[in-house]
Simulated assay, not measured.
Amino acid sequence: MPEGHSIHRLARQFTSVFAGQQLSVSSPQGRFAAGAARLDGQALIAAEAHGKQLFLEFDNELFLRIHLGLYGAFDFGGDETFRRSSSIGAPRRVGEREIADDGGEPAYAGPPPPKGAVRVRLTSDHGWADLRGPTACEVLTPEEQRRVLEKLGPDPLQPRADPREFVRRLSARRTPIGLLLMNQEVLAGVGNVYRAEVLFRRLISPWRLARSITQEEALGLWNDIAGVMADGVAAGRIITTLPEHRVDASIPVPVSEAHYVYKRQGLPCRRCGTEVAMTEMAARKLYWCPSCQQT
């Protein structure tokens, strides 16, 4: 499932190619026909991400809320104004990155016929975006959008986010911190990769109860998550290792050097040499170092 940095990249991409333009909105698959009709012909005012949720605001005071989930993905295409646009979401092709190529594009002649089960197609005079397989896709009024946001925890990538709200939501829970970091009502945007990596970076056991996390530790978690997720927005991928912990100092960072513990079970910890462990926590794979992250 795409984590928060990908959805913020997606919001930036929508702003870049569609903001201020009148859009044709359709549902080639037919499952979103009624919702598409409410947005068709309206101009996109803004695109904003909050955690793993994308909100597209239109000038008729309606929002299109999208949660990609495990299988949702957007494809983009168009003229030279779409030159740096790329596919964002899952499933991904092997080796695919969230960075588009620059050259070799034919002249834009309008959107191609829809390919596959396209839930929503958004089209401007300059290009198009196709959405397939989202977990959620719905039209909301401003009040409905507000209620959705109220249920979500703060997003570390939002400039106006208050880390004290994260501390508050964390401090009263008798739940392992490894579970709460992925609870979108506590902290919006963190998924399995950032959960494992930041807990390692802060040397915190995934099994420590949240109420035992001090305010200083919680703010450290918040600041570290905000930093690595901002790096993810810039790079288009998750890189959490520091240069001094990499064997290969080449740039760009190879996949084998990008993470401390995520999918590294059985390999030596980059910090202490202990074998990285893997188990399940609430039906999700959890990676950690038994030595560095003692309870």
Rank of each mutant, 00 (worst) to 15 (best):
R271Y: 10
E138N: 12
Q22W: 07
F166D: 09
V167G: 07
G127V: 00
V139R: 10
G69E: 11
V276I: 15
G95M: 06
V120M: 14
G95N: 11
V186T: 08
R147E: 14
L170S: 02
E150F: 13
K263T: 15
P252Y: 05
A33M: 09
N60Q: 11
Q293L: 08
L157G: 04
R169W: 08
R237Y: 11
T279V: 07
Q22Y: 07
R83V: 00
G191S: 06
G127A: 09
A172H: 12
S6I: 14
F63R: 07
H245A: 07
T15V: 03
I225N: 09
F74H: 09
G191A: 13
V198H: 00
A47P: 10
R9N: 05
V193Y: 04
G236C: 02
L267A: 12
A249P: 13
E3S: 03
Y262F: 15
D101H: 13
D75R: 15
G72L: 08
R31H: 14
S256G: 15
Y287R: 06
S87Y: 13
F82T: 04
M182C: 09
P268G: 07
P290T: 08
W288D: 06
G77P: 00
A129H: 03
A34E: 15
G133P: 04
R246C: 13
A49S: 10
D231F: 01
V276C: 01
F14C: 01
K151S: 15
I213D: 04
Q215C: 04
L181W: 02
R195M: 05
V193K: 00
E217F: 01
F55H: 10
I238C: 03
A196Q: 03
V139F: 07
E3P: 04
P91G: 13
L221W: 01
E257F: 01
V148A: 07
A161P: 12
R119Y: 07
C269F: 06
A210W: 00
P243L: 06
D101Y: 11
R146K: 14
S27I: 01
K263A: 14
L68H: 06
E257A: 05
M1N: 10
A46Y: 04
A19E: 11
E3W: 00
I99V: 15
V253W: 02
S124F: 04
D59E: 11
R264F: 09
L221F: 01
A218R: 10
D130R: 00
Y260H: 03
Q293I: 12
H5S: 03
F32K: 00
C137I: 02
A43I: 06
L23V: 07
L54D: 01
G4C: 03
L152V: 08
